[in-house]
């Protein structure tokens, strides 16, 4: 797992190689620990995963928590962007 914050205040979480439900656990842990930043500073959590199931489980849970979700298919992985509210 790799994690960094990019220039645009995005928290980028690279969990390629992980499978569900570990992907979901790790994403939820990031959503919890960065709650204030995501809600108050309009930061976004960008999750990079190559596990197809994660494109279903992460959006489902994140939506219930009030995050808007977009999923992009990149070359050999998926990019799931979570943004509070919107």
């Amino acid at each position: 797992m790799k994690k960094h914050t990019d220039a645009g205040k995005n928290i980028v979480l690279d969990i390629r190689g992980q499978i569900c439900p570990a992907c979901l656990m790790i994403t939820l842990r990031e959503l919890n620990s960065n709650k204030d930043k995501l809600k108050n500073e309009k930061a976004r959590l960008v999750v990079k995963t190559d596990h197809r199931d994660a494109t279903r489980t992460i959006p489902g849970a994140a939506s219930a928590m009030g995050y808007s979700v977009s999923v992009l298919q990149r070359d050999r992985y998926y990019e799931i962007t979570l943004e509070y509210g919107k």
């Binding site: 499978i19 569900c20 439900p21 570990a22 979901l24 656990m25 199931d53 489980t57 489902g60 849970a61 219930a64």
Partner: peptide, 12 residues
């Protein structure tokens, strides 16, 4: 409850 499958020992 969250709608996802159980943890496998090989995953965690």
């Amino acid at each position: 409850v969250m709608g996802t499958k159980p943890l496998g020992r090989e995953e965690l």
